[in-house]
Each structure stands twice: as C-alpha cells, then as structure tokens.
Design a protein around this nucleic acid. Structure first.
Lengths: 130, 130
DNA sequence: CCCACTGCTTTGAAAAGTCAAGCGGTGTAA
DNA sequence: TTACACCGCTTGACTTTTCAAAGCAGTGGG
C-alpha cells in the first residue's frame, strides 16, 4: 500500500465499537471528495487522466491522482497503460466489475437529486443527463 | 443563509459549464463528510444531538452542528426543540419526507458494500445490521 | 455539593484539498 | 527547426475543513 487512507484501517472509532460493518465502510469510501463524480464519469466509459479530470469537473490533478490510487487499491477501478503503436503511453482508467455495480448507487442518487434538488431553483426546466 | 457552503452557490466550476445538474448537486451534498452517516442514523428514528453523534460514530460536535445546519437548509432534516414538562430543552433531529427518500441511496450503498467490501477481510463472518 | 448528562460553542492545531507551475514526452503545424 | 498544444502526472505553497479538548449553561440524581 503506497499511501495510507483514513478509511482503510480499523482506525475509525465506530469500527472498534461496532466491529466490522460493510455499510459503514462503503459510506467511508463513497463520501471521499470526487469519488462519486469519478465513478459516474467512468460509468460512461473508460477515460484518460486529463479527460477524466475534465469530465469530473474541477478536481485538481493532485487530488485526482490520490483518489485514483485509492480506488485502485480497493479494486473499484483499473489502471491500464496502453502504448499506442509503440509510443505515447496513455493511461486509461476503467471500472472493475465491482465498480460497475456502483451504477445502482449513482442511479439512486440521480433519482433522489432530480426529485429533491431541482425545485425552486432558478432557470431549471428540463433535466438533461449532463 | 447563516453559513456559506461550497455546494450551495454556482461556484463549482462544472456548474458553470454544464448548467444546473441535479445529479451533480446531489453528489455534492451527499459526499460531504458524515452526511450519509447522519442520514443513515436518522433513518432508524429521530435522535438528539449527542445521541446522533454517538450513533454516527466519531464525528466531532463542531462539524456535526455545521452539517445539521446545512442539511436543515436543504430540507433534508428537521430540527425540533421539545420542552419536556416545561424544562430541559432537548433538540430532536428528524428526516423530512425528502430526507427519508434517501433510504434508496443508503440501501444501494448497503447492497454494494456487503457485496464488495466484506471479502477477504479479517474476522468477518456474518453481517449484522450494525 | 458533586458528578453525569443535555445541547451546543470556542480554540488552536493537524489533515485534507486546491492552485499554479513545471517536467519529460509526443504530435502537429508553421 | 522551432514553436505550441496536448499527454500524465509531481511538487510545493496556500487555503479550507476537520479535529480533539475544553468550556458554558442548564437539569437531575445520589
């Protein structure tokens, strides 16, 4: 493990009290800044680093690198370095099978968001899939 | 508005580019630290401040106060100050109708977490509802 | 009276995230 | 060939967020 992440070890106080709880852990992972945005972007297809950064919208490269590393150690995403015709190493990030199953979570958030976050907002008429 | 929150205004870079996107906003709200934990706790019934802090597990009071204020302005939770027999003002936090609909999100996370976060972990046998 | 509990607020320091710049490399057009 | 735009990052300084600990006002019990 290259870096140590707060949600990794049994360091969280509640973990000690409750024993291992997958839901608690899952929340710990998914509430990290940009993680859900990254997953959502990747659900629309694999992406390169800068491409992903643009799709995610506003995440800076340092944070993005860190998040991607973490998600890789959790086997949510996959990093592949493809060498196009022998040159230009481009990194491509893909969701693993486990990562793709987060579609359900994103869908649930999507549904809730459309129902509860678009009311009373200025200039909102139709919700495109942005 | 008492405090300014990052996910409130149109300050996020992606918001300007994409126009309003409820999913993007929803993610912005739900990825704030402790928010999902708070919602999950409150789905099990209304709670007082310290009671909620304990249920959530490890959130400090300053952050919790801030999160609760934010969630209240978003009409996700409700704060009620009940005076038990004329004395002892106890604050009780409840989910609104909109907040209760986050059950779907929590369920999705729960499902995913049990499927992908409990494998290969030490000392994990049965998953209780913790 | 003293201690435990309630719901918070304050403080200062640590952790996390952000910004801007830069590095080595490629590819494209002047 | 020189220049500039892209690629995937890394670095270091700066800002924001979260933190633990303490404290405050009030209630209730031993």
């Amino acid at each position: 493990m290259t870096t140590l992440h707060p949600s990794d070890g049994p360091s969280a106080s509640a973990t000690a009290e409750r024993g291992f709880c997958p839901v608690y852990r899952a929340i710990g992972v998914l509430q990290e800044k940009w993680v859900l945005h990254i997953v959502r972007s990747l659900l629309n297809g694999e992406k390169g680093f800068n491409e992903l950064a643009r799709a995610v919208g506003g995440c800076n490269s340092a944070t993005l690198t860190q998040r991607l590393e973490h998600l890789e150690t959790l086997s949510i995403i996959n990093k592949r370095t493809e060498d196009t015709h022998g040159k230009l190493a481009r990194s491509v990030y893909t969701l693993t099978a486990g990562g793709r199953e987060l579609q359900g979570v994103i869908d649930a958030i999507d549904t809730w968001g459309r129902a509860h976050l678009s009311e009373g907002q200025p200039g909102v008429v139709g919700a495109q899939d942005c």
